[in-house]
C-alpha cells in the first residue's frame, strides 16, 4: 500500500521465529509448546508474504495457504494427543516424561 519495506518484515519474522523457538525449548507444558510452534509457523508465513510482496508475486500467498493447512492439521493432531495423554492419566502434560512412552 505504501512504503512498507519487506526487509523489515523479514527481520520481524526472524524475531518471531526466535521467540517461538525459545518457547519450544524452554516450556515444559505441551500445550504451550504447541502455541510456540504456532508462532514459529506464523513467522515462516510472514517471511513468505513479505517475499511475495517484494517480488509482486502471488506465490507467497500460495505458500501461506499451504502453511495454513499445515498448521490446522498440526494443531488438530497435537491437541488430540494432548487430550489423549490427559485422559490416560497425565494431567501435567509434562513433555519431559514423554520418554516413558506409556499411559
Amino acid at each position: 500500500m505504501s512504503t512498507t519495506s519487506p526487509a523489515q518484515a523479514l527481520l520481524l519474522a526472524a524475531v518471531l521465529f526466535a521467540t517461538g523457538m525459545l518457547g519450544v525449548l524452554a516450556r515444559r507444558n505441551l500445550l504451550l509448546m504447541l502455541m510456540s510452534i504456532e508462532i514459529m509457523l506464523n513467522a515462516a508465513a510472514l517471511a513468505f508474504i513479505a517475499a511475495g510482496a517484494r517480488w509482486h508475486a502471488p506465490q507467497g500467498q500460495v505458500m501461506f495457504l499451504m502453511i495454513l493447512s499445515l498448521a490446522a492439521a498440526e494443531a488438530a493432531i497435537g491437541l488430540a494427543i494432548i487430550l489423549r495423554l490427559h485422559a490416560a492419566g497425565r494431567p501435567t502434560l509434562d513433555a519431559d516424561t514423554g520418554n516413558r512412552l506409556k499411559g
Binding site: 500500500m1 505504501s2 512498507t4 519487506p6 518484515a9 520481524l12 500445550l31 504447541l34 502455541m35 504456532e38 506464523n42 508465513a45 510472514l46 508474504i49 513479505a50 511475495g52 510482496a53 507467497g60 500467498q61 501461506f64 495457504l65 495454513l68 498448521a71 490446522a72 494443531a75 488438530a76 491437541l79
Partner: peptide, 27 residues
C-alpha cells in the same frame, strides 16, 4: 494487520478467519 500492510488482503483475511478464529477456538 501486517499482511494487509504488505499488500496481501486475502492472506490477512484467512489469518483472521482460520487462524485467529478456527484454530484458536480449537485451543
Amino acid at each position: 494487520g501486517l499482511f494487509f500492510a504488505l499488500g496481501a488482503p486475502f492472506a490477512a483475511m484467512l489469518e483472521i478467519i482460520i487462524y485467529a478464529g478456527a484454530v484458536m477456538v480449537l485451543f
